[in-house]
Write a protein that binds this DNA or RNA. Structure first.
Lengths: 339, 339
DNA sequence: ATGAAAGCGCTAACAC
DNA sequence: GTGTTAGCGCTTTCAT
């Protein structure tokens, strides 16, 4: 059942059917009605693939994130979905699992499938995907990468600010031995996240102890493992700061397992404020990131980019979104001055 | 840059290039190498759209869920993604927001975009989408719908068993006034979820009080609102049972707001066991549903169906997955016999 | 207002 | 082992 069949049944040409389908040109009202009736009756569905091949757009956007199991990305995706739905675009979802090869593969696949644009959180700054994207001339926006060195759309969070605020909060509450759990960094020697921590330490004349700096996968397991290791090595600390709330949950889990009380024994502070953070036990103090907005804005930027693609002025934007400290119950003031 | 260009540059025909691209037929090793080299050099990417139009498959699956913000669906999606990635399919994600019109629209769109199959959680049993899907002859599997009346692939949870187990658990702990928070039901007079509750009550000679039966949106807000209303109306209860964990979180929220202690004042039991349930305050007793598996199995069923589509024997399966009670700390034994 | 025809980029007979 | 050719189902000039 294709457009030719409908044309035949209506006694018109394919072109006319196409016209009513797309409301592209005027068609006599009665032929229009007739065609519509037939379409309805036989339940004809246009083949969007064929259309896309011809018109060179698919009305679909690819999004690739490193971990769809992390509520952070979930929230971002919700934001993306919201805007995209409004604009009539579908979304093709890919999960890179933090592995660059997969990321690269997906980007190619999406390009091959002719998505109109791509939104993604690159695994690293000089990710090859980025270069490919640029060379293929397909509109894209990146989000969540701490820093970018090239001219393209991006909506970002200042991760160094997050850790700076978090570290300061801990310090103000009398902590000095502050564990920091970062995500594995492939490319950068010091991540933005570390740099904010370091700055806060320096400003408060606290010496940096390398034994307090740890990297893990940004999830529950990662947070858990770090605490386990640190405990085993008898590295003393009173506060901990994690790259994402999920890692903080891992800290909670370890605390429960090893009989450490939060916040009595150790204070913990997260980063991103996932929806359930306030319902955790105890409610997690964290740095709130506008996750939904990150997604929404990314999508908005992308769609604008796509719709102005032909225009000469392709001015790219990078939007930096605000973060703020959310005080709950996982951080406690120390009287002993944090040693 | 298309296949014709590559052919020209390599001094061969399009057919030959196509052959090396798809490894469909033998090609002389040196021409193969030459073509590959050119492809690599110029960064040629095949147009999958054109291919799909010809070969009549897109290697993409549509999935439509009612609320991507609910961790339940998220986990299901993770399962879907896992299997689909393994099988080389992309996923097109749609969010119906529990509104049937949107669901219908998305299903049509997906069909139009020629996805090879669809996985979805229908909003109701005689959803028009179901009928369309059947008539369009596109493979699909549904999940999570309490009951189905037609012959097609499905992977389900017995919701009446969930509520039965949950209610019994509350009763065994001395509760008699048990609030039940169900999702809005469009079509069914009594949902499966209610029926299990009713059965448990009856078996224990507890009379059903209509004032304890409530419907809400299956999310935090929904759970919160029910408790608020019930409190306002001074309806007494000691236990509450919700359609999903997220609604239980809403109960938690209301409890906090109105100064009710869980589990001292009221016991609550969830349904589905979202990943963070065990970290809530207090850890939530709930009925565990194999969410990831639901997704994985759904995808598996679908792919099998697609790959055997041409075969005469199209035997559909409905898989019913097990659930089990997970005891944590949100349910407490009552000494006063629950009145 | 409508039709004829070319073509989007690819694959798959069929021929050699 | 490789080339020629006919479409896949649609849109879009260009005629009329």
């Amino acid at each position: 059942m294709d457009i030719r069949d409908i044309a035949k049944m209506a006694g018109v040409s394919k072109a006319t059917v196409s016209r009513v389908l797309n409301e592209s040109e005027a068609v006599a009202e009665d032929t229009r009605k007739k065609i519509l009736a037939i379409i309805e009756e036989v339940g004809y569905l246009p083949n969007y693939l064929a259309r896309s091949l011809k018109v060179k757009n698919t009305k679909t956007i690819g999004v690739v994130v490193p971990d769809i199991g992390n509520p952070f990305y979930f929230e971002v995706i919700r934001g993306i979905e919201k805007l995209l739905d409004k604009k009539g675009f579908s979304i093709m979802l890919c999960n890179s699992d933090y592995i660059e090869k997969k990321e690269l593969r997906y980007i190619s696949l999406l390009a091959s499938k002719k998505v109109d644009g791509i939104i993604f959180a690159p695994s690293s700054e000089d990710s090859k995907s980025l270069k490919n994207l640029l060379s293929w001339d397909i509109p894209f926006v990146i989000f969540d990468l701490p820093q970018i060195n090239f001219n393209n759309n991006a909506v970002l969070i200042d991760h160094s600010l997050c850790s700076y605020i978090a570290t300061n909060h801990l310090i103000k509450n009398g902590h000095k031995r502050i564990l920091i759990i970062d995500a594995y960094r492939h490319m950068e020697v010091y991540s933005k996240f570390i740099s904010g921590y370091l700055r806060a330490l320096k400003e408060n004349n606290i010496e940096f102890d390398d034994a307090l700096f740890h990297e893990s996968t940004p999830d529950i397991k990662g947070g858990y493992n770090v605490i386990k290791k640190v405990l085993k090595n008898k590295i003393g600390f009173t506060g901990v700061l994690t790259i994402c709330d999920l890692a903080s949950v891992g800290v909670y889990k370890a605390a429960e397992k090893f009989n450490i009380k939060i916040p009595e024994d150790i204070s913990v502070i997260g980063n991103d404020d996932i929806p359930l953070a306030r319902y955790l036990c105890p409610p997690l103090t964290t740095i709130q990131q506008p996750k939904f907005l990150i997604g929404y804005k990314s999508a908005e930027l992308l769609i604008n980019n796509i719709q102005n693609k032909s225009s000469i002025i392709n001015d790219f934007k990078t939007i930096i979104l605000n973060v703020k400290l959310i005080e709950r119950d996982s951080v406690k003031r120390r009287q002993d001055n944090g040693n």
